[in-house]
């Protein structure tokens, strides 16, 4: 055991955060202000998500952290270790086994269950910020449901690029009421926002928490003649052959060699263990040998 209180934060702070979470769940998509604490990591490294995770974790939980889908990046590893140390909870890299998953920039490929919580790290919670700098005005726009401006952003996209070029942090409307920034997940993940699990969003620097309860309607904004389309690289995973997952592109050499692989490392690994093989899997295995 350590000298820290369970999950680092003191009980009062966790209660305060839980109240914000409950309010957020009661008003899906609404940004609840909360008194964000200083955490032992810089802003931008997931301080909002860490505080939300700290508030929801129990000793029985099994914790997973992904950054851009991967469990093994610096950010993911340090947050996972942080809670191993301060909460003593079990950790896992398997999506199916985790009860709380903290994520940056992705939703796992494996559909989440009702007994799972997904915690997002959010840099800028305000979807209207790009066009309206005034916080007073954006709050008023939310309260009065004045969301024309959101479509101005999409209009600008089409007029400049011929299509809606917004590829991540694609705005959604939650349960027909609040327009919400789903954090910088690729728009490929947007359809997954309607899920069985609980989704909690924490923005540490901006001091906002918001939430999407299970089975809540989440609609990506679009135009009638430019409907929303989730996109990914037109390719299959070179490691596991999956055609339904979001892919990262990896530059292999300076001669134009490249490969695509699942950004969700657990998904890819699980598939390969099950015997799925991608186009370049064999070549890579030789290299390694």
């Amino acid at each position: 055991m350590t000298d820290y209180n369970f999950a680092y934060l003191d009980e009062q702070t966790k209660r305060m955060i839980r109240r914000a979470i409950l309010k957020g769940l009661a008003i899906p998509g609404y940004q609840v202000p909360f008194a964000s604490r200083e955490m032992p990591m810089p802003y931008g490294w997931g301080t909002g998500g860490v505080q939300v995770s700290a508030a929801v974790l129990t000793p029985e939980d099994r914790f997973k952290v992904i950054d851009q889908g991967a469990d093994d990046t610096t950010n993911a590893v340090s947050i996972r270790r942080f809670f191993e140390k301060t909460a003593g909870v079990a950790v896992t890299e398997a999506t199916a086994e985790a009860s709380v998953i903290q994520t940056r920039h992705r939703i796992p490929e494996l559909p989440l269950r009702e007994d799972q919580i997904l915690v997002y790290q959010v840099p800028i919670p305000e979807p209207l910020r790009f066009l309206e700098p005034s916080e007073v005005e954006t709050r008023k726009m939310h309260s009065l449901e004045e969301y024309g401006l959101m479509h101005v952003k999409l209009y600008e996209d089409i007029s400049q690029h011929g299509t809606i070029a917004t590829a991540y942090a694609y705005p959604v409307k939650v349960e027909g009421r609040y327009v919400m920034d789903p954090s910088p997940i690729p728009k490929f993940d947007n359809p997954k926002l309607e899920m069985a699990g609980v989704q909690l969003f924490g923005a540490g620097r901006e001091q906002r928490i918001y939430a999407v309860p299970p089975y809540t309607q989440v609609v990506s904004l679009d135009f009638d003649d430019y409907p929303f389309a989730p996109t990914k690289a037109d390719h299959a995973c070179d490691l596991c052959g999956a055609t339904d997952s979001y892919l990262d592109e990896l530059i292999m050499d300076d001669a134009g060699g490249r490969m695509f692989m699942c950004s969700d490392t657990d998904y890819c690994g699980t598939r390969r263990v099950a015997g799925h093989v991608g186009a370049q899997a064999a070549a890579l295995a030789e290299d390694a040998a």
């Binding site: 024309g148 401006l149 101005v152 209009y155 135009f223 003649d225």
Partner: peptide, 10 residues
Amino acid sequence: RLMAVNARHY
């Protein structure tokens, strides 16, 4: 202003 009154056809 059009989009503010729910015009949704680009």
